[in-house]
């Protein structure tokens, strides 16, 4: 059996493969639903209703999509340059820590000054956290996959230490949580009385900015060149190491924004369960979008819908909500196969 390149398919056919991947994902999930003794059709219907069946459901899905857009963008940017950032989870928490440190009264500034300052420092913190593994990769040849993964555990312990020490809420009745951020450090809600906040708008703008960087700037071109073939890029005069550093800063910064927007827009404070794995799910979001920044928005909403819908479904149908995680992981694997088959075919001989 051989995998060989095939002529570029038409645009319609290119779309067909991802659709087939999603269909396959639903088919596999349906088998698990059957194993759980429920009917796939009613379960998928309940998921749909829970994710998009009402204004409340839809807003909830968009709220859940917000951090996923940021982590998805972070992964898309890094993977495009073949910088394997599996540490978006840690970078998210760094952004959240900065938000709490600066936003709980330490900087008594009006919102129009305070929020931009927090955003910049949070992005810097997340970026620097990824800069470490990037430097280790370029200077010492240490694989960044392992270092970014291990940093996730270190940073979570660091957050736990802060929440039981300097950042502990004195009013928190002993729970490991930080105090709430002040009103001037909060992102307003888009619709009064609903949970959707301006972090979502920030996420959309970020996607657009990342798209412009990737498609319209020299840096974006260099990042793609480094990702495509490092030796060739270096030979053509692309400063590979410096491009990887800039990629790391951008990627880590984007992931940190997820932490900022969750604290400042939604939760108000920092806890150890701020992120139920948004950093890891960002990898799926980015791959489903084929690393396209605009596609990240769509795939984040899709993935968020599955999670929100599965939560609602699980309450009424009794199928464990972990079905959503299974579905998202399956979608990742079917999608990489689908992307392969848009450009290659199997030849049996």
């Amino acid at each position: 059996m051989r995998v060989e390149p095939k002529p570029a398919p038409s645009f319609a056919v290119t779309l067909l493969y991802p659709v087939a991947a999603i269909a396959l994902t639903f088919a596999i999930t349906a088998l698990l639903v059957l194993a759980a003794g429920a009917s796939p059709f009613s379960v998928f219907h309940l998921v749909w209703k829970g994710a998009a069946g009402s204004q409340f459901a839809l807003l909830e899905t968009l709220t859940r999509a917000t951090p996923l857009i940021f982590t998805g963008l972070a992964v898309a940017v890094a993977f495009r340059a073949k910088l394997w950032n599996i540490g978006a989870e840690a970078q998210l928490y760094m952004g959240a820590v900065v938000t709490v440190v600066l936003g709980t009264g330490a900087l008594p500034l009006p919102a129009f000054l305070l929020i931009p300052i927090i955003v910049i420092v949070a992005m810097a913190a997340g970026g620097v956290l990824l800069l470490g593994p990037a430097v280790l990769k370029t200077r010492f040849g240490v694989d960044e996959v392992v270092t970014t993964l291990l940093l996730n555990f270190i940073v979570l312990l660091f957050v736990s230490m802060l929440l039981e020490g300097p950042l502990k809420d004195p009013m928190g009745l002993g729970w490991p949580q930080s105090p709430k951020v002040i009103a001037d450090a909060q992102l307003p809600r888009i619709v009064q009385g609903k949970r959707l906040h301006y972090g979502f708008v920030m996420a959309l703008v970020s996607a657009l900015v990342v798209w412009v960087i990737m498609k319209k700037t020299v840096l974006g071109y260099e990042m793609r060149a480094v990702g495509h073939n490092q030796q060739a890029a270096s030979f053509a005069g692309v400063p590979v190491n410096s491009v990887l550093m800039k990629t790391a800063l951008l990627s880590g910064g984007l992931a940190a924004l997820a932490g900022f927007s969750e604290v400042s827009g939604l939760k108000g404070n920092l806890t150890l369960d701020l992120s139920p794995g948004y950093g890891y799910t960002g990898i799926v979001v980015a791959m489903l979008a084929m690393l396209n920044p605009i596609g990240v928005v769509a795939s984040a909403i899709f993935v968020a819908g599955i999670f929100v819908g599965a939560d609602a479904m699980s309450r009424s149908a009794g199928v464990p909500s972990y079905i959503a995680d299974v579905m998202v992981a399956t979608a990742l694997l079917t999608m990489v196969v689908a992307i392969l088959f848009t450009r290659y075919r199997l030849r049996w001989k």
Binding site: M1, V3, L32, W84, I86, V145, Y280, I283, V284, M287, P320, Y322, I323, D325, V326, V328, A329, T330, L332, L333, V336, V337, L340
Partner: peptide
């Protein structure tokens, strides 16, 4: 191996799948 897909992406995918299937 036969399909030659990215070992990074597939590996993370298998970890996510195995973990979530276990919890499910």
């Amino acid at each position: 191996v036969p399909l030659g897909l990215s070992q990074h992406v597939v590996g993370i995918g298998v970890t996510l799948l195995a973990t979530s299937l276990t919890y499910f």
